[in-house]
């Protein structure tokens, strides 16, 4: 049984068909890559799965329940958490308090504030922000804010975690760290959907890749197959190279 099953998902904004008839599945424990050129509908798919947008058609089955039309906080409590491509941290409170929100709400809220604080601190340390726990997030850099968002999403104890371009802007060494961290997250029994542009990360991390172009799924398979798929190459580089 797949953890997540997306069936015939469509979403249009006015005349623009952002996502049309996209279907795919994610098995438990998998890391699924979601790639495609800019504007291909990757973030829209994440927004649809997390209830930030309502689809015009299609179904999203999570643990055998159709989560379409569920309010966002209910979707989180069922076990789907996310980060944002354009970060949305709680700016005027500390990094620790940001993570606390995830830990005190989310899927399995901590029984007490003390426990929640300890676990949140541990998560911040794991993403490398232990020393910034008591800083206001508005005083942190963009990269640090992304880490806060990741820790915050993990604190919600998701079964499925959606990462939206979390590695954008990282240098090669930082990408390696991030890949290591994502593998570790998987070892915590968390399934992942990763939207990413960095080829190295996609090849090195993902078990399977779904390729979108102009809102449609154009390919799906193991990363090695995908990078040799003529259709995918055409979409990224033009017909000459395909």
């Amino acid at each position: 049984m797949p953890l997540l099953k997306v069936e015939g998902l469509s979403k249009s904004f006015g005349g623009l068909q952002a996502v049309s008839g996209v279907s795919f599945q994610v098995a438990e424990g998998e890391i699924l890559g979601l790639i495609g050129p800019n504007g291909s509908g990757k973030t829209t798919v994440l927004n649809l799965i997390t209830g930030f947008l309502q689809p015009n058609a299609g179904a999203i089955w999570f643990c055998d329940e159709n989560v379409v039309n569920l309010p966002r906080h209910q979707i989180c409590r069922r076990g789907i958490a996310r980060t944002f491509q354009l970060t949305k941290p709680f700016l005027n409170i500390t990094a620790l308090e940001n993570v606390l929100v995830g830990r005190m709400y989310g899927r399995q809220p901590a029984p007490s504030r003390k426990a929640a604080e300890e676990e949140s601190l541990a998560l911040l340390e794991r993403v490398g922000l232990g020393d910034k726990a008591h800083s206001l997030v508005k005083d942190l850099s963009l990269m640090q804010r992304k880490k806060v968002e990741l820790a915050r999403a993990l604190a919600a104890k998701p079964k499925l975690l959606l990462l939206d371009e979390i590695m954008a802007g990282l240098n090669p060494a930082e990408v390696d760290d991030a890949m290591h961290l994502i593998r570790e997250i998987r070892s915590w029994n968390i399934t992942l959907i990763v939207v990413e542009h960095i080829v190295k990360a996609i090849l090195g991390l993902c078990d399977r890749v779904v390729v979108l172009n102009m809102g449609e799924k154009i390919a799906e398979g193991a990363p090695q197959e995908i990078v040799h798929d003529p259709h995918v190459i055409e979409v990224y580089l033009g017909k000459v190279y395909a």
Partner: peptide
């Protein structure tokens, strides 16, 4: 309290709060 933290989260960034399980 937990409720107060949730309220602050809603104030700071409503949609992010909701994505973490807070009912705005």
């Amino acid at each position: 309290s937990r409720w107060g933290l949730g309220m602050v989260a809603v104030r700071e960034e409503t949609s992010a709060a909701e994505s973490l399980g807070v009912s705005a």
